[in-house]
Amino acid sequence: MPREQLRLVVVLALICAVSGGILALVNRVTEPRIKEQAEQAVKRSLAFCLPGADEFQEEHVIPVSQQADKEVLAVFRGISDGVPAGVVVNVEVRGYGGEVGLMVGITEEGRVAGIKVLNHAETPGLGSKITGEKFLEQQAFREAGLDYSPALTQDGGDVQAVAGATISSRAVVRGINRALEAAGAVWETIFIDSARRPEESSQLDEGGDREQ
């Protein structure tokens, strides 16, 4: 029955072709919007972490795959009126239930300006409280900076962990410390270089080495 079988194949193939065509169309329409959403989300996070900066440039750092602990995803230079105003670092550390993505803003004085938890897989109702203001906007975090690494009270520092979620809290602290390290590694190149060459973005490979 080759005729019958041909019909089977043709109908299936036709349906696939029409579907493919429709989807290509839908994709064409939605893709720019989807990309835009993602970019907007990143911009909002950056602005939240370093208020006062009106522009952000991504810095060249060692790619994630080449890092030892693969935690620093990106470093951004924040610019205000053409002058560097600080650094925002995007890190991802291991939490209780999965990866915790953080963005940490550091002002030009070397102080932590803003912390945002981008994504996490912590336990709802417990570890998920690390995204809350009560935890992130505490005094100990406000005082943290390049010269003062935060640590949980359980680990000898001043940071109050979320009750019942020590591991999640510790992950956030680790992320902030990692971000501070990364910022410190590029600090000179951003602030000193730009005093000399304000328009150029820096060559950071030497600075990045110290992260290992």
């Binding site: 696939c16 579907s19 493919g20 989807l23 290509a24 839908v26 994709n27």
Partner: peptide, 8 residues
């Protein structure tokens, strides 16, 4: 470049 065909 046809990732939108992933589900199908």
């Amino acid at each position: 470049n046809v990732e939108f065909l992933r589900t199908i």
